[in-house]
Amino acid sequence: MPSYPSWEQTLAGKHWRNVHFPRIREDTPTFLGVPYALDEADIQGADVVIIGAPFAAGWGKKYSGVDKAEWLAATTRVRQQSIRYRGGYIQELDLDVFEHLKVVDYGDIPIPIEASYEGTVERILAAQELVETRVKQALNAGAVPIVIGQNSPVASYAVGRPIAQHFNGTIGMVSLDTHWDCWPYDWATKNDRIAGSTNWKDKLYRDCPNFAIKNLVEIGERGMLEDPNVVRRFVNGGCCFMPMWKIRTELGIEGVIKNLDHAYKDAEAVYAHFDMDVLGGAGPTDGDILGELAEPMGMTDYEAIRIAYETGRRGCAGLSFLCIPPGSAVMYRVIVYALTYFMAGLAQRKRDQAAGA
């Protein structure tokens, strides 16, 4: 696994500005240096609220063969890598996100560390409730919550369910993943109350009837991982399924972008979920850093970033990241790009609406 640079090395690589920017902890700047929101009052009037949700599923010290400490570091390391950039100006779009959006960083949710090493039902449900509470606060403030996490239910179900509760109408979903996560049970607990890594999507559609399968756009699965009954249930239910094989042989990225419209048809809101194991062996680093989650024929970093941008441009009620490839600075930068380009899409949408376009 690549050696992740220390905070001192990360700071030393910054050539353009000094070290005076908002910090959550000594080694944790806010995302892109945006204001740090301490409480619910601080998020009022925000367009986007960034939330860290550090949690790794299951018992013991490893998840999918990788040390849990590496997974849990993502909320810090994504922010560390973000501070190397000047701000929200994206040159190829000639757009400064912060000219159009008020963005705040709501810090990390205080999920007890024991929840990531002792996967009891009680600890998991408590962690889920903490995330749901903060996501609801963002939604009630009129903002788009963006949750940086690593495992379900904390960075998936706990984001999707508050969105379903906040809106009365149909909810669509844009989902990037290597796996469908639609088994009828959680692999780690076998408890029906847990929306875990293998079943969170099944449970979300079961518990939140305004999430419509016909408005699900599922992108990136491949290979021999799934039970045919799981896949056929969703395909026969009308979801738009774009496996990597179809993307490579038929659709290309432009076809994928066109098909995003399935999520929005007659929907009041759309939730975007980016499970970054979708990168597999693609992207700017080795796939093996994902441990057992690595699969061939992965999505590229550009494709994931482009989908994030186009989803934001169409409008999105919330975004979550999990299974962020651990231990590589450049992979954390992929998340910085995906998150920022998503906000750029939101900013362009807001700008166009203000102009009457």
Rank of each mutant, 00 (worst) to 15 (best):
residue 236 N to W: 11
residue 335 I to Y: 00
residue 162 P to Y: 13
residue 159 V to A: 12
residue 73 A to P: 01
residue 333 R to M: 02
residue 207 D to R: 11
residue 322 L to Q: 10
residue 190 K to Q: 12
residue 22 P to C: 15
residue 35 P to A: 15
residue 15 H to R: 12
residue 220 G to R: 08
residue 286 D to I: 10
residue 145 P to M: 10
residue 245 W to C: 01
residue 73 A to H: 08
residue 112 P to M: 10
residue 139 L to E: 09
residue 245 W to E: 14
residue 196 G to V: 02
residue 217 V to P: 01
residue 149 G to E: 03
residue 114 E to G: 06
residue 50 I to Q: 08
residue 263 A to N: 01
residue 38 L to Q: 15
residue 98 F to E: 06
residue 103 V to W: 00
residue 102 K to Y: 01
residue 131 V to D: 13
residue 44 Q to A: 12
residue 323 C to Y: 04
residue 154 V to M: 12
residue 84 R to L: 15
residue 301 D to G: 05
residue 255 G to M: 14
residue 208 C to P: 10
residue 253 I to R: 14
residue 126 A to Q: 13
residue 64 S to K: 08
residue 36 Y to T: 09
residue 31 F to D: 07
residue 192 D to C: 11
residue 48 V to N: 04
residue 247 I to V: 09
residue 186 D to S: 15
residue 193 R to S: 13
residue 346 L to H: 04
residue 119 G to I: 02
residue 216 L to G: 10
residue 70 E to M: 07
residue 201 K to R: 13
residue 280 G to S: 11
residue 5 P to D: 13
residue 76 T to A: 15
residue 122 E to S: 12
residue 291 G to Q: 03
residue 129 E to S: 15
residue 146 I to R: 06
residue 335 I to L: 04
residue 217 V to T: 15
residue 6 S to W: 12
residue 96 D to M: 01
residue 110 P to T: 12
residue 16 W to N: 13
residue 37 A to P: 03
residue 251 L to Q: 05
residue 140 N to Q: 13
residue 92 E to Y: 13
residue 46 A to W: 06
residue 105 D to Y: 05
residue 320 S to R: 02
residue 287 G to T: 02
residue 263 A to H: 08
residue 85 Y to V: 05
residue 332 Y to K: 12
residue 95 L to T: 05
residue 63 Y to A: 10
residue 280 G to P: 07
residue 58 G to Q: 06
residue 301 D to K: 12
residue 52 G to M: 03
residue 5 P to R: 14
residue 136 K to G: 08
residue 230 V to G: 03
residue 39 D to E: 05
residue 288 D to H: 10
residue 176 L to G: 07
residue 6 S to N: 10
residue 142 G to A: 15
residue 167 F to W: 11
residue 235 V to N: 08
residue 39 D to Q: 05
residue 40 E to G: 08
residue 254 E to I: 13
residue 109 I to A: 07
residue 234 F to K: 05
residue 9 Q to F: 08
residue 285 T to H: 06
residue 119 G to P: 06
residue 270 V to Q: 04
residue 183 W to I: 00
residue 185 Y to F: 15
residue 138 A to I: 10
residue 228 P to N: 03
residue 144 V to G: 09
residue 342 F to P: 01
residue 74 A to N: 06
residue 232 R to M: 08
residue 80 Q to C: 01
residue 196 G to Y: 14
residue 242 M to P: 03
residue 275 D to P: 00
residue 292 E to D: 11
residue 107 G to E: 09
residue 242 M to V: 02
residue 112 P to W: 11
residue 215 N to H: 10
residue 130 L to V: 01
residue 135 V to Q: 12
residue 313 R to A: 10
residue 172 G to H: 06
residue 311 T to C: 05
